[in-house]
Design a protein around this nucleic acid. Structure first.
Lengths: 262, 262
DNA sequence: TCGCCAAATTTGTGATCACAAAAATGCATT
DNA sequence: AATGCATTTTTGTGATCACAAATTTGGCGA
């Protein structure tokens, strides 16, 4: 059920990194943020290696990096799993993200250039266009693009990396926002207010907008928890986190390596 | 000049991780935070492997993790270096740390137990004792212990990991604070005020104290930058960041593997 | 004496192998 | 039919090897 495809390009690091390690990392990250992994699902090095057609070496380094970033979880024994999300964790992530993303937008409002603001406006328009089509995956990608374009304006690389790490942990659960929340919330209007605040160099207003955005979004997700505090995302195709018997399931879930690399 | 010793135990992760990878990671981290690496210094996998008496495999994974955490820097070509510190970077780290450590202490003040407060008081006393001896390394270790004991009280593991990542980047430059700053600042009094605020559940006051602490400390470090904005830490033994000629220097800097592992 | 280029060395990367611990399987006993 | 227990399989870990790119070295020529 899980299908991983190679990604050739990425954003943050050196664009000249063509190593297999980086490609595996990008592939896993893309699979993760697009919700192709089920929470609690076990992930073996050999599975990923076979799915992507590479040896264990680059897979190990890529997966270990994701573990260090909190995107994967290392069990006490020795296996990698997709972390489960709890209400407490969402609330913790909410508070951290409110703090750091508020900080970033405050800085951004002080230094934004006309071209950068125009770029934000373009992305905001694209979100509206994509939303009409009802494509939730493209929608989330565009929203992510808007946010990171905004945070990048701050010109603070370390801050940006912190934010990226936090997004990576919330990413797999953002599809919970569809179709209820995002479709109904005042997303487009809020983005326009943010852009307006940047234009008028109003750091306080810009910061308040983004804080409300993050707060509202993650508070909503936290509210989806069951009585035990667990949050289960609706998967595109419901690949249960519970393993079926034996190697049959593994063979079923393994896709014949569709990879763009080379 | 660089000497790396194996560490058997660590704090944050699973305490059951006895892998070589983890030991190498802890060793490098310890060497880094105690200022045993010169900024700009190049680090090769084989050097570390030889120094610690292990193969390349665990070294690669450990170093790559440090790179992901921002403790090391990957050059566009392909070599790992100790990052240089600039005024802009210190100020960026300052603002992030003020935000997240303020957040942590605010939470801590709301939930601190009597035993946890007593523990903080014990560490605060130990800092005073260590300071009398003038041991700057032990001093910094104790201060770190106090801060993380404080942040741990918040009970927010993700927040704690973010803070650890930020400390790892500022760590190598904290020895700049000696002997001028730390010895003169009102450190002990501030810690007592923080403890007092925790006791009276005054989150606002506790938060303000830690914000002032981080702000003051890193603003001081930022002030040490030269005209170009670079910050050069005074190394215990001034191993210049500039390499001397050829392999002679490498041979000189390589220490005959003092390691506790096995 | 100072560049400049080819040879030699260093170094990161990826694959493969060996091994031990963990997990899964299957069989026997009650 | 259920439950232990031994066997088999899976899986992470660390070492080693091969290779290409980058770096360094050394000598040649202006």
């Amino acid at each position: 059920m899980v299908e991983i495809t190679m990604r050739t390009a990425a954003a943050n690091d050196e664009l000249t990194d063509t190593s297999l390690r980086k490609q595996v990392y990008d592939s896993l990250r893309a699979a993760l943020t697009s919700g192709r992994f089920a929470p609690g699902q076990k992930l073996t090095f050999r599975f990923v290696a076979k799915a992507l057609g590479v040896s264990l070496t680059p897979v190990r380094e890529a997966v270990r990096r994701l573990v260090a970033e909190g995107a994967f979880e290392m069990q006490p024994n020795r296996s990698v799993r997709i972390p489960l999300m709890t209400k407490a964790k969402v609330l913790e992530l909410r508070d951290i993200r409110v703090a750091v993303e508020g900080l970033a937008v405050g800085k951004a409002a002080e230094v934004a250039t006309r071209a950068q603001i125009a770029n934000l406006r373009r992305i905001a328009r694209e979100i509206v266009a994509v939303r009409k089509r009802g494509d939730s995956v493209a929608d989330r990608e565009k929203i992510s693009e808007f946010h990171f374009a905004l945070y990048t304006i701050s010109g603070q690389p370390t801050l940006l990396r912190v934010i990226e790490g936090l997004w990576l942990q919330t990413g797999p659960y953002m599809n919970l926002l569809f179709p209820d929340y995002i479709a109904s919330a005042g997303g487009p209007a809020r983005r326009l207010r943010i852009i307006q605040a940047l234009q008028s160099r109003d750091a306080v207003a810009a910061r308040r907008e983004i804080e409300n955005d993050v707060d509202g979004t993650l508070s909503y997700v936290a509210g989806l928890a069951d009585e035990a505090g667990n949050i289960v995302p609706a998967l595109p195709s419901a690949a249960g986190s519970r393993r079926s018997k034996g190697k049959a399931s593994a063979a079923l879930e393994l896709r014949p390596k569709r990879l763009d690399l080379k």
